[in-house]
Amino acid sequence: MATIRVQHDPIDVGAEFAALMSDAHGNTRTDIGGIGSFIGTVRGTAKGRPITEMALEHYPGMTERALSAIADQAAARWNLLATTLIHRVGPMAPGETIVLVLAASPHRADALEATAFLIDWLKTKAPFWKKETFTDGTHSWVDARETDEAAAARWGTEPGHPA
């Protein structure tokens, strides 16, 4: 079971944690033993210059498909009880939360590895684009980084846990 969402509104990390920990009847789940989390925030500088805003564009439709496929891939590789992938779009200020990844499992190893996998693949396979606005009012689209490709590649491409 995966919660996949693209939203303009700020991400309420506490509310998402509570939702993940609740079953369909609103009771607290007790099968979960640990939740891995990654909270991405907007850095206030880019290439050494302060920014005033980060704007996120995405490809509606494909984004949700891509995020669902990434969550499915994680569920096939690790023992996960619940997954949350929430990404913000639109304008954001430095310090705001831009992405939230939660992966719940009976045990920590699966939760932590799955969390790293989810954010690595999200960064290279989900159609989002960042645009920074600097203090002088100029804009710049963020370039993709080879280090992100390398981070995603370490998980391989085929189903099955890497040895």
Partner: peptide, 10 residues
Amino acid sequence: VAFFPPVTGG
């Protein structure tokens, strides 16, 4: 058919 630069989310 969509065209775009390499993705930069997350």
